[in-house]
Design a protein around this nucleic acid. Sequence first.
DNA 1: GTAATATATTTAGTATGCTAAATATATTAC
DNA 2: GTAATATATTTAGCATACTAAATATATTAC
Lengths: 142, 142
Amino acid sequence: MKNNLECDIRQTLDRISAKMRRDYSEALRELNLYVGQDNLLSRLWLGGDGVTQMQLCEYLKCEPPTVTNMVRSLEQNGFIYRIKDKDDARIMRIFLTERGRELEAPVTLKWEQQQKKLLHSILPNDRSLLRKLLKQMENDLF
Amino acid sequence: MKNNLECDIRQTLDRISAKMRRDYSEALRELNLYVGQDNLLSRLWLGGDGVTQMQLCEYLKCEPPTVTNMVRSLEQNGFIYRIKDKDDARIMRIFLTERGRELEAPVTLKWEQQQKKLLHSILPNDRSLLRKLLKQMENDLF
DNA sequence: GTAATATATTTAGTATGCTAAATATATTAC
DNA sequence: GTAATATATTTAGCATACTAAATATATTAC
């Protein structure tokens, strides 16, 4: 069991994602962001100003308390602000501040750099094959 | 940039690893373990009884404070115990309890189940190709 | 032998991420 | 209109995981 193919694939995948996360986390610290916050902001950058926390849960595929914490941190650091919906008092709507909006370009640059590093030695043909296989795995998982 | 190949691969990889972690976390809760603790224990199962925390850092590829916390939790739950090295008082050596040793079989079973699910629809040929590409990516990253 | 440096671990404080339970507001059923 | 149910968010408490700083012990330089 120890050294077979399946085991190796799962473990390698684990190591890649952990290492990717660490590197990426470090890169984002230069922008005063924590890893994951960029994903939340990206939902707002693509014209999603006024989105609810439930919509962010859906987008980030995480649970409501996680979004509560992320949103609190981002608000405290001045990247977003929240307004209670006037028709449904249960709902908080999230908006970008100017400072949050300004992060789009530098974060996109970090994304590109990270991707470049990740796929550095993979040839174009292999890239599309890799994507196909990963998508297949994703489908099996969900 | 938004929908190109590279971006897709990074994001898909992210989603797979997050989903895998969630599923796996749930499965491990039945054994009173948290995700990651199984990896620490596996280092001990493979004849590594008496290992130091620094060696666990190396194995788990994480920082010393993380190991301190994991080890504290595992000790409190009775899976391991710690003894101060008699020659070097800075070093703590980690040992499995009987309860910790008993977890090897059920955890291995969970691993197999998770791997099976992950690679369910990937053909053997594609599996070795996939592994090759993942290893290549890992090399680029480190 | 003492001072400076290196190593191993812990503490404090931050984040993401979870579950379970509490709270507040809306909607539905009667 | 009231009671029961559903939805959105928060709180509390747990985990992994990080950095920076503190602590304790060893080793090296002199």
